[in-house]
Design a protein around this nucleic acid. Sequence first.
DNA 1: AATCCAATAGCCTTATCGGGTCATTTTTCA
DNA 2: TGAAAAATGACCCGATAAGGCTATTGGATT
Lengths: 209, 209
Amino acid sequence: MAISLGIVEDHSEFRQSLIYLVSSFSDYSVKWSFGSVEEALDNFSDIDVLLLDISLPKMAGNDSIPLFKNLCPDLKVIMLTIQEDPNSILKAIQNGADGYILKKTHPQKILEAIQQVRDGGAPITPLVARQVFSFLKTAPGKGINEAKLTSREIEILTLITQGFSTEIIAEKLFISIQTVRNHIKNIYDKLQVHSKAQAVAKALNEKLV
Amino acid sequence: MAISLGIVEDHSEFRQSLIYLVSSFSDYSVKWSFGSVEEALDNFSDIDVLLLDISLPKMAGNDSIPLFKNLCPDLKVIMLTIQEDPNSILKAIQNGADGYILKKTHPQKILEAIQQVRDGGAPITPLVARQVFSFLKTAPGKGINEAKLTSREIEILTLITQGFSTEIIAEKLFISIQTVRNHIKNIYDKLQVHSKAQAVAKALNEKLV
DNA sequence: AATCCAATAGCCTTATCGGGTCATTTTTCA
DNA sequence: TGAAAAATGACCCGATAAGGCTATTGGATT
């Protein structure tokens, strides 16, 4: 069974060469291709893999990933881009992209990438990987829970860091406000803080939640 | 000029096949190979690229990366591993690894990886990339300062994230409590939050301060 | 000169928080 | 089994926060 592809790429020339490239092999078939996210969404039909340009005239490719995945949950999305910008790489990943390759990537590698996402891999060119690495290097390490909070306390602290009020937390946990207040007091004692703001700061900085 | 290699790998069989593989091409030359980090450090001489096993009998490959880089700052390190464990991948990256590939990777790909690190890339197998992606997806993204807070507001927001009360902030900035309260209100409007706890959470998660 | 915006400051009201103390029940563990 | 820890719930009180509204000043911008 051939891998069915969709392509969203506004440069018609590059789009055509992608189609030409892929069509040379019976393992792949381009089911549709459009020059904008809007057209693609309007005329969407299920495919296996979507090749999605990052810089598009109207809606950015990055932002549209969830929309496509919503239409077709099993869809694998490979981002195509001209240059590796750390911010857009990160954004693409967090939006659920499955791969991220440069347009100047050797055609053979693009074909490999398509197969790789089908096999559950995340195709990524070495130069892009370098950006990802450098980001991870500076990423905050998940430290260990120093203060020995109980699971209930961690649960409540987590909700506090999400900005919920005492009242809402009580509702969410099906317990009384008083109880939540007691837990919060105990949390304050253990963390040695005296307000929610301080608790949130400490929890996030020390990765307690 | 051939790329000079070092190898640290405790399984002599795999070590030999690596040497055999690499020696087949004049572009590469194995300068030395050892079965443990300790031996390699004791007998170290400058090389271009180090192939470093993750699971070693004594000192873990991961922990030794900084030691090697210390001896030879321009050294590129490619981690070799049997399986992709998210934690060790992250650890390796944060320790300064330049690439991370599976031992079962096709020999041809291993050679490519060596060249890629020399070219400033970060070779990484698709399956490993998948792990990295999934980590990044849950990692706190350093979004760009969306809301355009004034410098005074950022100043106050920073103090809030440090857990100071409105009163203390007023004292620190030599302005009245009322003024601080007004700034806080404006901050809330811009960040679309309704409490200090929420503001702290947003500020820290989105790196606004 | 007119306007906008940031920073400053005040007032009023209601709601929530933080701290203290106490009590009951369930779970965990030695 | 019996003590310790955790989770639950309550009361009170004063302090703080949050929301709404108005207003002045000084520096830019137009």
